[in-house]
């Protein structure tokens, strides 16, 4: 089971209400390479992965939920004081029509989250390569959002998340090597 801890993994502050940035950020909330996809991908793959990497998938998958909460906090803080007019100007009129100020799992273009964003192949190498690619895509997305943001407080938190993608990618690469080493010993295969 899981225990909720009443704290963010890393502090999230924003300089000012900025629904335009929130619209971009939602890509990391309910987008293909976002934190929801990441958490659900790893925590689902762990049931069929060799025992040696179950711990890693469990721990990274759990950390992704902490990142999802950080992204939610950013979107919440960037939009909570926005007027309807400001939401409309930021391109969030369609969002407002359906959700008011609520958060929702869709990407920055408004498409709802779908399980087709993630995969579980049952083949450990295929799954781990997908995970490495997912981390690299998420890292790139964070970079593109940072490039469009002029909020130094927000960027500080986004840079933290960008670095975490790099660490996760590295750990997944090590997991591949661990499985390759295992594969050469006949007792396992």
């Amino acid at each position: 089971m899981w225990l909720y801890e009443k704290k963010l993994q890393y502090p999230v502050q924003v300089s000012e209400c900025n629904p335009r940035l929130a619209k971009f950020l939602v890509e990391q909330y309910g987008g293909a390479d976002g934190e929801l996809s990441a958490a659900l991908r790893y925590l689902n793959q762990r049931y069929s992965i060799p025992d040696k990497v179950i711990g890693l998938l469990t721990d990274i998958g759990t950390e992704e939920f902490a990142h999802l909460e950080m992204i939610a906090t950013m979107i919440y803080k960037l939009t909570k004081d926005a007027s309807v007019e400001e939401l409309e100007e930021a391109g969030l009129g369609a969002h407002y029509a359906s959700h008011d100020h609520a958060l929702f799992y869709n990407n920055s273009a408004g498409s709802p989250w779908t399980a087709t964003y993630i995969q579980a192949k049952g083949d450990p190498i295929a799954d781990l390569y997908e995970d490495i690619a997912a981390e690299e895509k998420a890292r790139a997305t964070y970079q593109w959002i940072i490039n469009m943001s002029d909020d130094p407080f927000l960027n500080d938190s986004l840079k933290f998340l960008r670095e975490r993608e790099i660490v996760h990618s590295q750990r997944f690469r090590e997991a591949v090597e661990i499985l390759k080493d295992d594969q050469s010993s006949p007792s396992h295969y």
């Binding site: 993994q9 721990d59 750990r171 997991a175």
Partner: peptide, 17 residues
Amino acid sequence: IQEIDFALVELTLYLDT
């Protein structure tokens, strides 16, 4: 707390491999 716990997350993932 966030600083200490971050080090613990990082060490956890490192020790997994």
